[in-house]
Design a protein around this nucleic acid. Structure first.
Lengths: 96, 96
DNA sequence: CAGGATCCCGCGGGATACTG
DNA sequence: CAGTATCCCGCGGGATCCTG
C-alpha cells in the first residue's frame, strides 16, 4: 500500500489509519473507559506486548489516544471515531 | 490476530473483515458503480494483479461483491457497508 | 482484457528474557 | 506493572511472465 498515491481520498486515509484489526479494538476499548497497558493485554487476547506497544505508540502519535499516569484515554480527535465503530457494530450484529 | 478469540465481538468481526486498506477501497469503488478488473487496477494505483485478485476473491466469498460478465457489483450484504464507509468519509474530511 | 503461476524478498509480529 | 530489546520465522505481497 503506497500511502502517497491515495492521499487525496479521505476514505483512503481513514482506511490506512484503521487498517489493522488490533487498532480498531484498542479504540473500541478506550472509547469505553480509560485503560492501562495490562487492561489491553487482557482484552486483546493473543496480542504480544511488542505489537501492543507499537500500536499504542502509533495511536498516540496520531493523537487518537493519550497517556497520563499509566492510563490511556481517548482524545477529542479519537472520540470522533465512535461513529465509525458504532456503524461497524450495527453492521456486525446484522450480518454476522 | 487470532480470529477465534474474538468471534464474540461484532466489532472485531467487521474489523477483521475490513482490516486491509485495499479491501475498503474496493468496496468504496464498487459502491459507486460496477467495476471491471482493470477499473480496479486504475483506481487502486499501486496494487498488484495478484493482490487485487486475492482481495476480490475474498470479498466474493464473503458475499460482499459478486461477479457477472466481468463486472463486479455490490451485493445486498455489501451495500450495508456504505454506512461505515460514509462515516469514514465524514471523519476523514474533518480530521485530515 | 481477466486473471493464474512462480519466484523471491522484506518486515510484521510472536516468543522470550530483561529492566525500572 | 509497563514496557524495551533481540532473535527469528512465515507469509503477504510485488514483479514478472503466461494463458484464454
Amino acid at each position: 500500500m503506497n500511502e502517497k498515491k491515495h492521499n487525496t481520498c479521505p476514505i483512503a486515509k481513514v482506511a490506512i489509519l484503521l487498517s489493522d484489526p488490533w487498532t480498531m479494538l484498542i479504540i473500541r476499548d478506550v472509547l469505553k473507559k480509560k485503560m492501562r497497558f495490562s487492561d489491553f493485554e487482557h482484552s486483546l487476547e493473543g496480542i504480544s506486548t511488542r505489537t501492543l506497544a507499537k500500536k499504542i505508540k502509533q495511536l498516540e502519535q496520531e493523537e487518537i489516544i493519550k497517556k497520563e499516569e499509566n492510563y490511556y484515554t481517548i482524545t477529542k480527535k479519537g472520540s470522533g471515531l465512535d461513529k465509525i465503530i458504532k456503524s461497524m457494530l450495527i453492521y456486525g450484529e446484522k450480518y454476522f
